[in-house]
Design a protein around this nucleic acid. Structure first.
Lengths: 240, 240
DNA sequence: TTATGAAAACTGGTTTACCAAATTGGTTGT
DNA sequence: ACAACCAATTTGGTAAACCAGTTTTCATAA
């Protein structure tokens, strides 16, 4: 079983910094990376981690809770902790809490999104690799499929944009996009209407952006995204 | 079992789950605000907080540890937890952890900084209030003073730019700037030489930006910042 | 009145034991 | 052979007691 593999590797790593929580935190994080633990995989139980790392269960709990706060794992009572796929959600709260980003300031959020994405799509058009292009295409396929099935496609929409920011080759830009994505989703989940004509329009706009990136045309990419964000910009206008 | 994992991975509303988990966290944060606790003030003891908030001491501990991880408080064994300044440095570490921003990716950082600041200075030129303009002027005065005294002025430099992003009126942009500022400082602290002629050139460039914001001229502001970032852009070129 | 110092109270950290939910694996009934 | 069921085990969560420093208190001596 997977747990066995993990425990075996922990035996090798018995010379762990057992002093501070942060080290335990990093140990577990490294463990996740080292074994390529993916979405759905279970972490060893707290007791076993405690025993194998040679630290108290409290330290393990503390570290795991931090991981959960980051959204890296999701711990379920009386069951265990599993790796979550996309691990960004907590950062959202962090932004609100620590940077004192007041709740209803969606205008700033949308404004920033437009700025970031415009920069990202330009860089993506310049730098995208073949693999990244394929990822964007797949994201677009997922999006299209959802739309044509009349299912909610907001998540797939955002994922399309995230693959673009990833293709920008700028990790910070991509990180910022991941940072604000949950807020975007939360906001538009509330009010976005999804009638058919508008949905197909979105597909076409996405295709235009995709095509520009495929052709590595920076001006076209920027302009296509600009068109795609027309409604967003109207939203900004109407709330000034 | 499997169903559970699948359901959980499909659940994108992590925020809702988190909200209950971090209720105590927010309570303590509110308490800090409500009592106007400032830097150096001590937090009530864990036991008192436990009693006052009506939750177990474990929950309090968990929340306080999160606050410490954010750098909001610093807890000292057998003594107590004190409020630290604004906990931006901790955020910085967290960015590295969560966004997997590996050390030598300063190119992305600088690139992003240019993008963000260009957007910020344009917005600042449009929206700056009289008070914000004054803050920028004061920041520039501090910067100039340091330079003329031949003292290190990197912090004041960054602060000047932060007051501009603040004046943009976009809290998210400003937040992002605060987010990446420590990394920028850390990097340039290592290698930037500060000879006199270059320093005075920086003062003039800052003055140009300031003047453009004062005149509320968006093109001038953008162009002045562009000039100011010439060396940064060269840095990007040379590292491609 | 002030300085001293020891004890009492209080602090965060750790350990331990226990809880209830969830998983698991075997058993049983069909 | 298969499904339903049940009990033992394992899980994360909780609470209380204890530990080792720190801070406060206050009686006592200078």
């Amino acid at each position: 079983m997977l747990n066995k593999v993990i425990q075996d590797s922990l035996n090798i790593n018995h010379a762990i910094d057992l002093e501070e929580d942060i080290h335990v935190f990093n140990s577990i994080k490294d463990l996740i990376k080292k074994h390529n633990l993916e979405e759905g995989d279970k972490l060893p139980s707290e007791r076993k981690l405690s025993e194998k790392l040679g630290v108290s269960r409290n330290q393990i709990r503390s570290a795991v809770q931090k991981l959960e706060f980051y959204g890296i794992v999701k711990t379920m009572p009386q069951s265990g902790s599993v790796i979550t796929g996309i691990g960004v959600p907590a950062i959202n709260n962090m932004m609100k809490d620590v940077l004192e980003l007041d709740a209803p300031d969606f205008k700033s959020l949308v404004e920033t999104r437009i700025i970031i994405e415009n920069a990202a799509v330009r860089l993506a058009a310049q730098r995208r690799t073949a693999k990244e292009l394929e990822e964007i295409e797949n994201a677009q396929l997922d999006f299209t499929r959802k739309i044509l099935n009349n299912e909610p496609a907001l998540i797939e929409d955002i994922k399309f944009h995230l693959t673009i920011s990833k293709a920008s080759g700028n990790k910070v830009l991509h990180g910022i996009m991941k940072l604000i994505a949950p807020d975007i989703i939360a906001h538009f989940n509330k009010e976005q209407v999804c009638d058919r004509t508008k949905a197909e329009k979105l597909i076409n706009e996405h295709n235009d952006v995709l095509e520009a990136i495929r052709n590595q045309s920076v001006p076209e990419a920027s302009e296509s995204l600009n068109v795609h964000f027309t409604s967003l910009k109207n939203y900004l206008q109407n709330n000034n």
